[in-house]
Amino acid sequence: MALIQREALDREDPQRRVPIAEAFWWAEEDHGLLGEVGSYNTPKDRHGEYRGGTIGASPAYSFTAHIADLSVDVETGVTTVHKVWVAHDCGQALSRRIVEGQMEGSVYMGFAEAIMEEHVVDPEHNGEHTGPSLLDYRMPTFLDTPDIEALIVEAPDAQGPYGAKEAGEGPLHPIIPAIANGIYDAVGVRIDRLPFSPPRVLAAIQAREAEVAAGHVQPHKTNARRAG
């Protein structure tokens, strides 16, 4: 039987079909409430020998790699991320679209931290939060978010439920260093503080240009190419 377009139909004879609601009605009449309960516990023997080390120790770790395609505007310090490829080893993917959605959402959140989001308290104004609303705490909109391509890598883990590892937080982390490395590749500056905001990136570019002018460092490849 297949459930398609709000109808339950016989796969052998697709002309035999009823509305889904009716199919569930019949099923509940025959079998009672349709439901299933399940749970998964992490293996007991996996934990660190330290205080708190026994809490939810994971039997396996996920692995992620990100590639960010970006450009840096050397006059404004604005970093524009065009596209991100995220490859994530989640073990066995139980629902591919949902795993992809977790990966894409993680890229979004990490990208947002890298480019614009920031919790700042202002010590000169009684520690007020400078971004207390969705206007002043800037989250990327549909127009700011890069294209994201999620690539699932399946390496099932025997200890995980149905072979799964995880696909929640793991795919977030590498996007920040990927963007930082992209900025370095583009303009030769290392930014080690979040976010990589335009004033911060521009200040680093200008500081590097001053170093180049003083003969302390070599021009970055981009600068060299432009000069040539």
């Binding site: 404004t76 614009m116 206007l135 800037r138 990327p140 909109t141 549909f142 127009l143 700011d144």
Partner: peptide
């Protein structure tokens, strides 16, 4: 116009 985001700001 320059602002941080492409919309809302």
């Amino acid at each position: 116009k320059w602002t941080v985001r492409g919309s809302i700001d």
